[in-house]
């Protein structure tokens, strides 16, 4: 896995869908190799934030930087090639493609074929290589999505609610994976599962109605899920 080069920082971000503004003056920083969580109710604007960082939405105003590289205005595929990888919500893998094809596609653009690393994290995928995405369970799909992102040698991982609707055992496993990934990539994790957040995050931002309402850096507060008070 690659070495981290910089922090991911978002400054004064305003994002709107047409007339409806969704994010207001969002500031946040993910230190190099750190894992920062972003929590908030449904509809708070977390997905919008990640989609904007990943280049799928253009902000009205504000900046997104990785190290000292400006990310705003670049196409999503350019960002992905730079190593800014976005793991979407809803576990959307290609239903009609096999796991193998899913992974091959993920490593095509970056020319990186280091599949063993992926299988180290998710041994389960190895047995499923010829199964179609549409026939995977929720947990398997999530593994595949993260695995796909890892194949792109990510410098930054943007992960959107990975544990939503998954069995506790799988959540446990994913928690372990995130812990291992820490230090290897700069990770911004959107998550509603506060115990998991407490386990892996160095810092937590609470988002409410499109604004960052709290930044919590105290380990103890994070572990004890004190964030809940802000939601």
């Amino acid at each position: 896995m690659s070495h981290h080069h910089g922090a991911l920082s978002v400054e004064g971000l305003h994002v709107a869908y047409g007339e409806a503004q969704v994010l207001f003056d969002v500031h946040l920083t993910v230190p190099p190799g750190g894992l920062v969580a972003c929590v908030g109710r449904n509809g708070a604007g977390k997905t919008t934030l990640l989609r904007t960082i990943a280049g799928f939405l253009r902000p009205r105003a504000g900046q997104v930087r990785y190290g000292d590289v400006d990310l705003v205005g670049r196409k999503p595929y350019e960002l992905a090639r730079m190593g800014i990888r976005y793991v979407q919500q809803d576990k959307r893998v290609f239903a009609d493609l096999t796991v193998r094809e899913n992974l091959r596609l993920a490593s095509s653009a970056t020319g990186d074929w280091d599949w063993d690393a992926v299988f180290r994290y998710f041994p389960r995928l190895k047995a499923l290589l010829d199964r179609k995405g549409g026939y995977l369970s929720g947990g398997e799909r999530q593994m595949l999505m993260i695995g796909r992102a890892l194949l792109g040698r990510p410098k930054v991982l943007l992960v959107d609610e990975p544990t939503e609707g998954l069995a506790p055992a799988v959540v446990e496993q994913l928690g372990g994976v995130f812990q291992e990934l820490k230090g290897q990539a700069t990770i911004l994790l959107v998550e509603q599962n506060l115990p998991l957040v407490g386990r892996v995050a160095d810092k937590v931002y609470a988002v409410k109605e499109g604004r960052v309402v709290a930044e919590i850096t105290d380990r103890e507060a994070i572990r004890s899920a004190a964030v809940e008070a802000y939601l």
């Binding site: 990943a54 595929y77 992905a80 090639r81 596609l105 653009a109 970056t110």
Partner: peptide, 9 residues
């Protein structure tokens, strides 16, 4: 979108 997110132009 998903394909583009994987770095494909």
């Amino acid at each position: 979108d998903q394909v583009e997110g994987l770095g494909v132009d």
